[in-house]
């Protein structure tokens, strides 16, 4: 049933967020530390595990694929609810601080990618 997939997804997300909150409290910061990342790892782990032990049915999988496919429209909705006025209202200093941080980070991507040995990168291209 489709709900099994949706339910598995919900389980992963809630467990991830809980662990993230727990990590945040342990570190003494008022934030969730990697909760969604942990949820993603958990989903990958569970879906690989079940490939050997108990197969996820294709209908169950479609409950997860649906939400994965809804990703882009959800992100567009997220864009439409951003506080764009707030971003522009902070004056030149806030704009410059944001822009400079982005430019510096963009420039560093090829540098870090370059530092690691080619063999480790392998043929990681996806199409």
């Amino acid at each position: 049933m489709i709900i099994y997939g949706v339910s598995l997804l919900a389980f992963c997300m809630l467990v991830g967020i809980f662990i993230g909150d727990l990590l945040g409290t342990l570190m003494g910061v008022q934030a969730n530390v990697g909760g969604i990342g942990i949820a993603m790892l958990l989903l990958i782990y569970l879906s690989n595990l079940s490939n050997k032990k108990l197969q996820l049915g294709s209908i169950t999988e479609s409950g997860i694929h649906f939400w994965s496919a809804m990703y882009i429209p959800i992100v567009v909705a997220m864009a439409a609810k951003q506080n764009v006025i707030g971003a522009l209202s902070g004056g030149w200093m806030a704009l410059l601080a944001g822009v400079a941080a982005v430019v510096a980070s963009f420039l560093l991507i090829p540098v870090i990618a370059h530092f690691t040995p080619r063999a480790e990168r392998g043929n990681s291209d996806v199409n």
Binding site: L9, A10, C12, M13, G16, I17, I36, A39, M40, L41, L43, I44, S47, N48, E61, I64, H65, F66, W67, S68, M70, Y71, P73, I74, V75, V76, A77, M78, A79, A80, K81, E120, R121, G122, S124
Partner: peptide, 29 residues
């Protein structure tokens, strides 16, 4: 749009995208 684009649905969809991810790629990087 506030609900659909809110953190809850966004994170749910982000987690779902991990379903097709390759474990080796994650380990490598």
């Amino acid at each position: 749009i506030g609900i659909m684009g809110g953190a809850m649905f966004r994170d749910f969809a982000i987690v779902a995208t991990a379903f097709g991810a390759k474990t080796d790629e994650l380990k490598k990087a």
